[in-house]
Simulated assay, not measured.
Amino acid sequence: MAAVLGAGVGVVGTLAVAALTMTATRWQVRTQAVDAHAQWRRQVRRDAYVALLNALGEVNEDLFEISMYMYNCRQPEELHTHERMLHAVAGTREVCRLAWVVELEGPEEVRGYAHVAGGKLNVWLVCLSDWYEAVRDGRDASEAEERTRAGMHEVEELIENLIAAASEVLDGVDQPPSFASTRLARP
């Protein structure tokens, strides 16, 4: 009788250890999958953010150089300015394309800044073009110059905010998942 009782306890103990081992293994596999997905998601977002910021930086540099030339010279150099404007237009299209990727990848904190990026560049570009044409045609350019300056500041502020939001999102994704987020759902 004692042997049967001992065998029963042994079987129950073995089954309990097996169940605990299975649960721990499932939890570990799920945790690793969540960690791998979070790392992949962070990398995809990082790549999208970097591409958008690089494109924004290039267009910002083009428009800034044209603005500085206009501020300092007051006489637009047709060929140089026109080529830079065309480059900025192409760059703005690229920013819009990359912004769509960032809008897709999100999250909301970054999506909003990406959504307005192309528009703010276009506004600056149009204001700068108006200023350029007013100076070239000998008209009063003070209003267009002021709008250009405002557009430049809006783009600079957008870039700063986008960098801050993207950094916050990427830093937050690095946090290890909590136990509650890695629990397996029961059927």
Score class of each variant (00 low, 15 high):
1 M>H: 11
2 A>I: 08
6 G>S: 09
7 A>I: 05
9 V>G: 02
10 G>E: 10
11 V>M: 12
12 V>W: 07
16 A>W: 02
16 A>V: 07
18 A>T: 06
20 L>I: 03
22 M>G: 10
28 Q>C: 00
28 Q>R: 03
30 R>A: 01
31 T>F: 03
33 A>R: 09
33 A>Y: 02
35 D>S: 13
35 D>Q: 14
36 A>T: 12
37 H>N: 11
40 W>Y: 13
40 W>R: 15
41 R>E: 13
46 R>H: 10
47 D>G: 06
49 Y>C: 11
50 V>I: 13
50 V>W: 06
53 L>W: 08
64 F>M: 14
65 E>N: 14
65 E>I: 12
66 I>G: 05
68 M>G: 15
68 M>Q: 15
69 Y>P: 00
69 Y>W: 09
70 M>K: 03
72 N>Q: 10
74 R>S: 08
75 Q>C: 04
77 E>C: 02
79 L>Q: 12
81 T>M: 14
84 R>K: 09
87 H>T: 14
88 A>C: 07
90 A>M: 11
93 R>F: 09
103 E>S: 01
104 L>D: 14
104 L>Q: 13
108 E>M: 13
125 L>A: 00
129 S>Y: 01
129 S>I: 00
132 Y>R: 11
135 V>E: 05
136 R>A: 06
139 R>P: 00
139 R>T: 01
144 A>R: 07
149 R>D: 01
152 M>G: 07
164 A>H: 14
166 A>V: 12
171 D>Y: 01
171 D>P: 00
172 G>H: 11
173 V>W: 14
181 S>I: 04
181 S>D: 14
182 T>R: 14
183 R>S: 08
184 L>F: 00
187 P>S: 09
